[in-house]
Simulated scan of single mutants.
Amino acid sequence: MNLAFLASHGGSAARHLTEACRRGELQAAPVALVSNNSRSPALAWAQAAGLRTAHLSSAKYPDPAELDAAILDFLQDAGADTLVLSGYMREIGPRVLSHFAGRLLNIHPSLLPRHGGRGMYGDRVHESVLAAGDTESGATVHLVTAGIDEGPMLAQARVPVLPGDTLDTLKARVQAVEGDLMLRAVQALAAQAAVRATP
């Protein structure tokens, strides 16, 4: 499995998975990272970590179809066969979606299908959980499809919503489980790929 990442900011999932690969916990090779943000910490980190990197955004490619094609060309050239969204704040184009169908993963900071869909990202998700009075939240790893947060769920981790929780305390509790949850989901995907590849 050759992993690539799309990131807009810190790229915590990319870092966690890359470290797991290098510790031997994940039988995969991290190969590339694309960011739509030239100043993202993820881009600087990936360059230092030896991944192939590219800044590809609507500033360079105002036509969404051209941006979609540029991202796919870069990822194919890097040899990526599995794509992980690591805090990527843009919609995925149809060519990338089609090429990586079944091998394109995202993590969402709630227990989908609750608090998902268009406009539900980052702090907005945790605010929605608190406003709803939910007693638990968590994170969900799912396959990415054309519908926002609608792809098949691969794994979930649950955390309690405690009395007196604020946006920051709930977010920290959810973020604490996200890295290992994504790792387990990618490990399972890698195991399935290995079984399919066995003659």
Results as ranks from 00 to 15, higher is better:
Asn2Val: 00
Leu3Val: 05
Leu3Ile: 10
Leu3Gly: 05
Leu6Trp: 00
Leu6Ala: 12
Ala7Ser: 13
His9Tyr: 13
Gly10Leu: 04
Gly10Ala: 14
Gly10Val: 02
Ser12Thr: 15
Ser12Ala: 15
Ser12Lys: 07
Ala13Cys: 07
His16Leu: 14
Thr18Glu: 10
Ala20Pro: 04
Cys21Glu: 11
Arg23Lys: 10
Arg23Cys: 09
Arg23His: 10
Gly24Pro: 10
Gln27His: 15
Ala32Thr: 02
Leu33Met: 10
Leu33Trp: 05
Asn36Cys: 08
Ser38Arg: 14
Ser38Phe: 02
Trp45His: 07
Ala46Gly: 13
Gln47Asn: 14
Gly50Asp: 13
Leu51Ser: 04
Arg52Ala: 11
Ser57Phe: 01
Ser58Ala: 09
Ala59Trp: 12
Ala59Met: 09
Lys60His: 10
Pro62Met: 10
Pro62Leu: 15
Pro64Lys: 08
Pro64Arg: 13
Ala65Cys: 14
Glu66Leu: 09
Glu66Ala: 15
Glu66Cys: 14
Asp68Lys: 02
Ile71Gly: 00
Ile71Ser: 02
Leu75Gly: 01
Leu75Trp: 07
Gln76Met: 12
Asp77Leu: 12
Asp81Thr: 13
Asp81His: 05
Asp81Met: 09
Thr82Ile: 04
Leu83Ser: 02
Val84Trp: 01
Leu85His: 03
Ser86Asp: 08
Met89Val: 03
Glu91Val: 15
Gly93Arg: 03
Pro94Tyr: 10
Pro94Glu: 09
Arg95Glu: 11
Val96His: 01
Leu97Asn: 03
Leu97Ile: 11
Ser98His: 13
His99Phe: 11
Ala101Met: 10
Gly102Tyr: 01
Arg103Ser: 03
Leu105Asp: 00
His108Val: 00
His108Arg: 02
His108Asn: 08
Ser110Pro: 08
Leu112Phe: 04
Pro113Thr: 05
His115Arg: 00
Gly116Asn: 04
Tyr121Thr: 02
Gly122Cys: 00
Asp123Cys: 09
His126Thr: 15
Val129Thr: 00
Ala132Cys: 10
Gly133Ser: 07
Gly133Ala: 06
Asp134Thr: 12
Thr140Ala: 03
Ile148Trp: 01
Ile148Met: 08
Ile148Pro: 00
Gly151Lys: 00
Gly151Arg: 02
Pro152Asn: 06
Arg158Thr: 13
Arg158Ile: 14
Arg158Ser: 10
Arg158His: 15
Val159Gly: 06
Pro163Tyr: 08
Thr166Glu: 08
Thr169Ala: 09
Leu170Cys: 07
Lys171Leu: 11
Arg173Trp: 08
Val174Phe: 12
Gln175His: 15
Ala176Phe: 13
Ala176Arg: 12
Ala176Pro: 09
Ala176Gly: 08
Val177Leu: 09
Val177Asn: 01
Glu178Leu: 02
Gly179Ile: 06
Asp180Val: 15
Met182Phe: 13
Leu183Asp: 00
Val186Lys: 02
Leu189Tyr: 01
Gln192Phe: 09
Val195Tyr: 08
Thr198Ser: 14
Thr198Gly: 12
Pro199Gln: 15
